[in-house]
Each structure stands twice: as C-alpha cells, then as structure tokens.
Write a protein that binds this DNA or RNA. Structure first.
Lengths: 153, 153
DNA sequence: TTTATTCCCCAGTAGCTCAGTCGGTAGAGC
DNA sequence: GCTCTACCGACTGAGCTACTGGGGAATAAA
C-alpha cells in the first residue's frame, strides 16, 4: 500500500504536468488546488526536487515545475524517492542491503529466491509506467465516458 | 517490504512442509528450531490456521501441521492473511474498499488506473508462486552449490 | 537597498502499527 | 484429575505516518 505522501506526490505531479509550457506553480496554490496540507506538500516537493524530478525557483515568480518530461518520470522513481527502497525483503535491497538475521544461508534461502522474482517483476512494471501514462489513462477514461453520455442523449 | 511476521510465517511453513507425512509439530519446537519468539509465533500460526493454511490439534500429541499440500499454498495467500489486503491504494481493495478522499472521480483517476495494473501484475505473480516453489528453489540452489564444491575438490 | 515573495530547513507531536510479552483459559489424552 | 497443548485478550516500547510551526535564506521587483 502506498502512503498518503506518495499519493499526494502523484496528485502534485499530475497537476504540474498540466501546467502550460512548464510554468512554475506555487506550493500554496498546489496545496489548495489538490487539497493537500501545505507544510506536508512542501516537504514532498522538496524530496522530489532532491530526487531530480522537480526543479524550483525561489523568490517572486518562482515555484515548482517538472525537471523532466512526463514520459520520463517513472512511477517507480517517485515511489522510491518517497517510500525508500521497494525491495520486499531487506536482503534484496540494493541501496541499503541488510542481511536477514533469521536467514541461515542467504544464498540458498527459498524466501529470498522467490521474493527476488516478485521484486524483479514489480520493479519492471513500476519502471515502465510513467506520469504520462497516468495522465493518458485518465484522459482516455474521461473521453470514453463522455462519448457514452453523448450517445445516450 | 514484507513484515517480520510474514517472514516468520514462511520459515514456519517451510519447516512444517519438511515434516515427514504431515506429522504435527509443537509451537515451542518450531520456535526454537527457527529462532522465532514463541508467543509471537503462536499468534502467527493461529492466523494461518484461521486462514485455512494450517490445521491444529490440542492436547498431548497435538501441534500444527499443513492443511494443504505445499503446491497449493500460495505466497499471496500467506501475505494476505498476515499483512491484510495487498492493494496499493485503498480504493482498489476488494475486501475493504474505501474510496480515497483526495480523489475527485474514482472512475477516471489516473493514479488508480495505473495502480490497478500494478496490483493485477503483483497479484498474479504472488498467486502463482507457492510454498513448494520456495522449497524447490532452495533445494536446487543447494545442490547446484554442492556440485560446484564437488567439482572443485 | 529595501521589501515582498517564495522556497528551504529543523524541530516537534498525536496517533498508529510492528514486534513482541504476560497471564490466563479451554480442550485432549493418559 | 493431571498434564500437555493450543487459544485468546490485554498490554508495551520503539518507530513510523501524517502532519504543524517557526524561522531563515535566496531572489526579484521597487
């Protein structure tokens, strides 16, 4: 289950992606638009900036904007920035690998071997889905529903 | 990331699967064998029994044993019993569906649409991996390593 | 150079979950 | 009826989640 933090991040990113020619938007406006607690959003955007997904400018006319085009912002990257490593067991984590104390032999541990499969599958799905997909899917769904309504009139 | 509870559960299940002709094993023995806090293991085994994966007998000669053959105990079922629903967003949960208050329109929410894909992929992977796979993979790895050692002598 | 604007950053907090622990109850077999 | 075993509810300390508050620092316009 993704945290609220991550969900807020996606809402913010979708909003930012909709901004005409990448114009910066203020934390305060974004917070109001998306109904996200301002201070919390501030922290989220900062994390995304440090993760290289957003860029910011201080002072008048400043704000946040995407640092990459939406089709290069993967769902996996966003989740990894906000939730940390997404390995299902500590011994599979690349960034902060910690071997499991319960494990007798890490190399032959069945749990690890099976979870590695899960991990690989999950990673590949999350790396192949992008912010652009999120937006496209949503738009497709909206127009599909609109057509249904139009026909039914 | 799976919790320690779930990892203990897999360790216990692997141990139980190795028991000759499904003989019951005591919580205390299992706890000692696998280095799991006894009281904690007690609760885990109880959950698995309620989930239909284990069966128990009280009194002398009692204990726990598998209620199903290892190839019918899926990794997904075990995780679901111990961690609860594995839906990535509350609005995708089948068992306790709660719509996300942030969401304007659930039907056209891009986050939901994309996460549904993730959810489906993850579910199908977890439902296709079983306790038998865990054991088999581990044994394969052990024999593979043993051969390497044999040849190197 | 002042001032308004905007992000940056640290510190704290209520409530919840995780990983257990304690103490007792109830059923099965001898 | 005694012993062995699983069953069950309540409790706890540490750490995490979802925030809130108070300033500080960079930037641009005046």
């Amino acid at each position: 289950m993704i945290s609220k933090k991550t969900k807020y991040a996606f809402l913010a990113l979708i909003n930012l992606a909709g901004q005409p020619n990448g114009q910066p938007i203020l934390i305060a406006d974004l917070a109001q638009d998306e109904n996200i607690p301002k201070k919390f959003l501030e922290f989220i955007l900062l994390s995304l900036r440090k993760g290289g997904i957003l860029q910011s400018r201080i002072g008048k006319g400043g704000g946040y904007s995407l640092a990459l085009p939406p089709n290069r912002i993967t769902v996996g990257a966003v989740i990894r920035i906000l939730e940390g490593d997404l390995a299902p067991v500590p011994c599979l984590s690349k960034t902060n690998h910690a071997h499991c104390e319960e494990c007798r032999d890490e190399a032959t541990c069945g749990i690890r071997l099976v979870m590695d499969d899960v991990n690989k599958t999950l990673s590949s799905v999350l790396e192949n889905l992008t912010l652009a997909d999120m937006i496209e899917r949503s738009e497709n769904e909206i127009s599909k529903r609109k057509n249904v309504v139009d026909f039914s009139i």
